[in-house]
Design a protein around this nucleic acid. Sequence first.
DNA 1: ACTGGCGAATTGGTCCGATGACTTGGCCGA
DNA 2: TCGGCCAAGTCATCGGACCAATTCGCCAGT
Lengths: 246, 246
Amino acid sequence: MATTPPETVPEPEADTAPLKGGSVTQRAIEAIKAMITEGNLTPGQRLPTERDLAVHLGISRSSMREAIRALTVIGILESRHGSGVYVTNLEAGDLLDTFGVVAEISPKPRLAELLEVRRILESSATALAAARISASQLAQLAVHLDTMREAEDPEEFLAADMAFHRTITQAAGNEALAAIVEGLSSRTFRARVRRGRQEADAFPRTREEHTRIYRALVNRDPEAARAAAAAHVGAVEEWLRGQLEE
Amino acid sequence: MATTPPETVPEPEADTAPLKGGSVTQRAIEAIKAMITEGNLTPGQRLPTERDLAVHLGISRSSMREAIRALTVIGILESRHGSGVYVTNLEAGDLLDTFGVVAEISPKPRLAELLEVRRILESSATALAAARISASQLAQLAVHLDTMREAEDPEEFLAADMAFHRTITQAAGNEALAAIVEGLSSRTFRARVRRGRQEADAFPRTREEHTRIYRALVNRDPEAARAAAAAHVGAVEEWLRGQLEE
DNA sequence: ACTGGCGAATTGGTCCGATGACTTGGCCGA
DNA sequence: TCGGCCAAGTCATCGGACCAATTCGCCAGT
């Protein structure tokens, strides 16, 4: 090994060395990201084998595996057992579902902030949907509303609730926006917020709010839709903030 | 691709085994996340050693390292050589700078969508800032405006530009919102968008847009601030969409 | 008794080799 | 021609070894 002699004073701050930066694994991560951004790797394409990549970058297979795993977790790569490692389609959903994880592990105060972000995004998404939603999507919304109306099981209610919102965000015609909002509304996130709220008269009120959103969409009224969605999320938000002051 | 033979072929669909699901490494990731959400691990706390964790979960150290690396990349853990593995402060910035990566590797069409998200968020953030910004922050904005006015070097201009927006998003008082917007405005992202736009008369126009935002903030006019910010981002957005149709 | 530096123990970082599990595609036989 | 079997390719996991950085206590010098 011909590494640097132990004499230079360490300067841990400036990121002046993008290639030599940090650990070997980090270098591998950057290398793969660079290959994608520079077009050497296109969505869906298969990468060389772990061994070849490791040799090519001059690192061990273990380190290369860590790099691949890291990029897998954030949705850039996807490794299929026995087949190979592939670049994902790099669709919004692939990359942004990490958001769900963030929502899962964020401490309570951060939760309120994330809910505010969701309110902003979802109200805008609903306004967009008012202009772009199709007839079949409106029909879907009606079905989900009926399901919520007749559901006794909270589980079923929640599922229809999520489907309702999902249909709207998809109708907004911005996949990235939809993916982010969905991440902020992820299963455990909502479960955490709802927990303990069921004893209140939340269900009828929620149904009413949903109905208001639906009517605004039917009338293709973006401003009404925005207001209704903001009020809907805002209600949860306000309740959560109240919870925090204890 | 022949269809299924009469028998065999298990039913690998439903994710009926959340604990046994997927790979060993995945199990380790979920285990650590669970430890955090359940409060067994608090922000800043040190984890057991890799070796101990591996033994405790009944897996090899290699797999455990992959899990730790994965959680490190998304900002949940932080490992210090020679010292140990620690939970981050779980602040918004730690968790959401993954957004920058998403913006970096997203293909062009997705870029327009992300820019639309930024427009939505930044306009709302600016409106919030109009109500909450402090006198000293307003003074900072003035300094950044002057810097932009006198800067000849595009590099310097861009730095002041980013600082300007950063001050505003921070003034909005929502760290999560600020972190997301900053991720969407990350270095390479803006560099990519700007590239080739400099030959146009973009700088004077940008300065003017910034000045308009600044005045709205000085007047503490949320609606004017929202409109000015939306127009500012929207200008870039529109230009990018034009670029896409080639 | 206090201070300063040195070194051993601890711990993450990297590498290597081996084995198991899964996929794929071609070969072989009915 | 068709269908199943087999072998090569590849990821998944494991266990061990050594290197590098940090940390902290011991010890010598003052």
